[in-house]
């Protein structure tokens, strides 16, 4: 007997559904038992439990292990084999003649990392907010191919930081694309990764290029949330454009700006992969960031100092925690 196409589709769907139905039944039985035991209200925790277990395993446990490492010494990997040193690692990190002069510190690399990260973050955040704001304002205007440009600016966000850094390295290295262009125009090659100022400049530039799309998106959403009739009212009030931007756009966009600033700050403090692949922290220690210091101290130096790296991680963690609290506060104020 011939079967109709719709019957075949039903059969195929049935075949696919059968194992799912069996699986659901299999889960259903013990879940019913658990629900009877603990009550319907507490079932939410049962559903949260699997993820919580994974989260604990990969976040909470390493966090605790890290703190344990930071108060122990030696080169052993297992905490039980590591001697307790108390706040010794922290005291070593903070042993400085002047915190403004890394050379006066016992662990000068850490403080160079701190200084570089601070400088990187400062320039990156200021430039990022400015460029993102200008881009968002332009992309919010009625320009041709607006959708295309919005996609173009967001596209780098989708790329892996390593891919971004490698791409720019090919462009900026001694025999890279940029120098080829400069020499073709009769100029002299510039050794971007040899000059400390150029290296920091490009580290900041590449970071902005890679992440600006994300912050632009946040600001664009903020701009689009400003009711159009406010601008019409401003137009009726004979408000010059610059004043409308200064007195209407900026204040109403400020909650989004705060979110962008804090997120960019957090991202800046965490910077590692892009700069590491692009400059390797060089020349010398000119672009060495805190996270790179932690990585090298723990894993790539000849003497692997897990304790010191863990202590530096805790210090960085405190800074990030503070910034995250600021971000949460800013988000709450934005939603209020």
């Amino acid at each position: 007997m011939a079967t109709s196409p719709s019957t075949e589709r039903r059969t195929a769907a049935g075949l696919l559904w059968t194992p799912f139905a069996a699986l659901i039944k299999l889960i259903d039985l013990p879940m019913r038992a658990v629900q009877r035991l603990i009550g319907e209200r507490r079932m939410a925790y049962v559903f949260l439990l699997p993820n919580l277990l994974f989260f604990s395993l990969f976040v909470f446990v390493p966090l605790i292990v890290n703190v344990v490492f930071s108060v122990t010494g030696g080169a052993a990997l297992f905490p039980s084999e590591r001697p307790f040193v108390g706040t010794g690692q922290y005291a070593y990190l903070f042993d400085c003649g002047s915190f403004l002069d890394p050379n006066s510190c016992r662990e000068d690399h850490f403080w160079r990392g701190v200084a570089n990260t601070a400088r990187f973050t400062l320039f990156q955040v200021v430039a990022m907010v400015l460029f993102s704001l200008v881009t968002a304002v332009v992309l919010n205007m009625r320009i041709k191919a607006r959708g295309f440009f919005r996609a173009v600016y967001f596209f780098p966000v989708l790329l892996s930081p390593v891919v971004v850094a490698l791409t720019w390295k090919w462009i900026l290295q001694r025999d890279g694309l940029l120098n080829a262009g400069i020499t073709a125009l009769g100029g002299e090659r510039i050794l971007f990764f040899v000059d400390p100022s150029w290296a920091m400049f490009w580290a900041v530039f590449v970071s902005i290029w890679a992440h600006m799309g994300f912050y632009t998106l946040i600001l664009l959403a903020g701009l689009q949330a400003i009711p159009a009739d406010l601008y019409e009212a401003a137009e009726m009030d004979a408000t010059p454009r610059w004043r409308a931007f200064w007195c209407i756009t900026l204040p109403l966009l400020w909650p989004n700006m705060v979110v962008v600033i804090v997120l960019a700050l957090i991202k800046g403090v965490q910077t590692f992969d892009e700069v590491f692949v692009l400059t390797g922290g060089g020349p010398g220690t000119a672009t060495l960031m805190v996270v790179q210091y932690i990585y090298e101290t723990a894993f790539s130096n000849q003497v692997q100092n897990f304790g010191l790296a863990a202590a530096a991680s805790v210090v960085l963690g405190v800074v990030l925690f503070t910034l995250t609290l600021a971000q949460l506060a800013a988000s709450r104020r934005k939603d209020a």
């Binding site: 009711p227 009739d229 406010l230 019409e232 009212a233 401003a234 137009e235 009726m236 009030d237 004979a238 408000t239 010059p240 004043r243 007195c247 209407i248 204040p251 109403l252």
Partner: peptide, 30 residues
């Protein structure tokens, strides 16, 4: 802006971050 007219909008279109005084004074400052 150059027609010298004033409009009251359906949504009121008041500047939400400005006080009542500032809302009324804004056009006069312009």
């Amino acid at each position: 802006s150059e027609r010298g007219l004033a409009m009251v909008f359906q949504s009121y279109a008041l500047y939400p971050h400005m006080s009542v005084y500032k809302n009324m004074a804004f056009a006069l400052e312009n």
